[in-house]
Structures are given as C-alpha cells and as structure tokens.
Nucleic acid binder design. Structure first.
Length: 282
DNA sequence: AAACTTACCTGGTGGC
DNA sequence: TGCCACCAGGTAAGTT
C-alpha cells in the first residue's frame, strides 16, 4: 500500500521525469476518484509549467505555473494508486484514469480501487498549507522537526491525554504523518511497544525509541524503493510498489524473526495489526 | 474534545 | 464450477 515511502519514491521519480516540462493536454478518462477530478483541469492546466514537486504526508504536490494561473496539483495514491511517466505512444492500461501529456512524456494516474485523489489548489485561494486536506496533518517524520530527540518529544507531547491505542494514534496522522497500516505495525515492533497500549500511558523514553523506529523503518523503505525508481519512467515497468522484508506485517502465525514466537494479529478499528506478543509485551 | 463508525471502491480469495 | 461474502486500507464526514 502506498504510505509515505511510496509517495516519496514517486515524488523523486516525478522530479526527475517531469520537472520543467509544460503541460500540453489533460485527459480525464474516469474522474470518479475519491473526489471528482476537477473538470476545469482540462481547460486551465495546459500551458502551465511544472515548477516544483514536493510531498506532504501522503500527498504528492506538483506546483504548476502559467501566465494566467498558479497552483498545485494534489495527488494522493490512496490504496492502489500509481503515477507513471511513460512514452506518449505507450498503451493505455485498464484503470489509467487521468493523463497529463507533457510533450516528451506522459504522466498517467492509475488506480484500480479509485480511493486515490487528484485535486487542484489555486494559489489565489490562499497558502497551500491551509488546504483542508493538509491543514490538520501532523509533523513530517523525516523532517528536522522530528529528528533525533525532537521526534520523541513530538510523540510524547502529542499523546498526553489520549486514551486510544498507540497503533491508532500513529494511523490518525494528526501527530505524525505518513505512517500507514504496514509501517505502523513495523515501527511498533522495532520499538518493542505493544500496538494495544494506550497512547497516553507511554513514557518519554519509549516514545524516543518509537520515533527512532519510525525514522529507521520509513528510511529503509525509501532506500529500497529508490532502487525501483527506474520503474517510474519505464513504460513496461511494474507499478511503483516494492517489497519489504517485513518483521511482522502479513506474517500471522510465522515465527518472529527475533524470538521465534508466532506473530499474532489483532483487529483495531477494523484494521489488521500484526505484532509479536513476546517482543512487544507492553 | 476525543473516540468511534461508516462509506468509498475493486480485485482476489476462501468457503460451500 | 460458480457464487457469494469478505477483506485489503487512507481518509473524512457523521455520530456518540
């Protein structure tokens, strides 16, 4: 599933592939994503040049500028979304819902389950950070703000008074962003914290350990994905997902890689959580 | 205010 | 073999 690392790998691929190019044409084949893809993109975006490619949480932010307009394409991969940059004559695949023709190359948004999103934030409507999709997001886990001791403090302070399980606090994204269902389980395993522990009952020292675990887990995944960057610009390449050697995710019943005890599953807020009862005793 | 529930969407799978 | 129920999960809107 696309979490922060997949978004970051996609951003880097996009930065290499489309930065500085001019949008010639936008095609919306199926605009029925999580929210309707703005129809006016087909009219207003052509002529704009791609100026910046950034990421906030799981949103990929593509800054576009023309003489008439300035704004940001906000692209979310949802659960099954991918962005690929391919040759203009390459075959359109099933679920290629939106296409940005950039002259030399074409960027295609593919999403079988259509829980992803393509939105437009016009600069005239205020700063991007004030967008309703970004305004309530927590701290970037790979930013300076979350580095070293600071990350542990962010988690510790953000969790005071919260009674929900730590797994769900991580997923909520209001304290720290980018940690989805897979990396939440993985990070908690690395930090040796039970996913069921009430967030507010976890002390400072353990949150420092968790912050470290989140950074290590996400960075390792990005490094892995970096080696698949080629896929992003290869028309025959697989989608931009990459395999990880998970410690616990999707390993129910298999032996823990550290202690050998069978990995367990628990349902939390209708999501599967994977953990080792021995290594993550509390 | 915080926490919990529901809805969105399709492809793959397990049970019968 | 076919049919159906269920699950995968990021997000936000609605409800308690």
């Amino acid at each position: 599933m696309p979490e922060l690392p997949e978004g970051e790998v996609t951003r880097r691929g996009g930065a290499e592939a489309i930065l500085g190019l001019r949008v010639a044409h936008v095609t919306i084949r199926n605009g029925n994503l999580r929210w309707p893809v703005p129809e006016e993109l087909t009219q207003d975006l052509p002529g704009s040049v791609v100026k910046t490619i950034e990421r906030r949480g799981k949103f990929i932010l593509i800054g576009c500028e023309s003489l008439q307009s300035r704004g940001t394409l906000m692209i979310h991969l949802g659960m099954t979304g991918t962005l690929r940059v391919v040759a203009p004559d390459s075959e359109v695949r099933p679920h290629d819902h939106v296409e940005f023709d950039l002259g030399l190359v074409v960027m295609r948004f593919n999403d079988p389950r259509r829980v992803g999103a393509i939105l437009w934030h016009d600069q005239a409507d205020g700063p991007l950070a004030g967008s309703r999709h970004l305004a309530k997001l927590g701290v970037e886990p790979l930013s300076e703000e979350f580095a070293c001791q600071a990350g542990g403090e962010v988690l510790f302070r953000g969790s005071r008074g919260r009674t929900l399980p730590i797994k769900q606090l991580l997923l909520a994204g209001d304290i720290v962003v980018g940690v989805g269902n897979i990396y939440a389980s993985e990070s908690l395993f690395r930090a040796r914290i039970s996913p069921k522990t009430a967030a507010g009952s976890i002390g400072r020292a353990r949150y420092h350990r968790l912050a470290d675990a989140i950074r290590v887990t996400l960075s390792a995944a990005i490094d892995k994905g970096g080696s698949t960057l080629r896929d992003f610009v290869d028309s025959s390449g697989a989608p931009g997902y990459f395999q990880q050697d998970y410690f616990v995710y999707d390993r129910t019943g298999l032996p823990c890689r550290v202690c050998g005890q069978p990995i367990r599953t628990v349902r939390q807020a209708a999501r599967s959580t994977f953990y080792c009862a021995q290594c993550q005793a509390r």
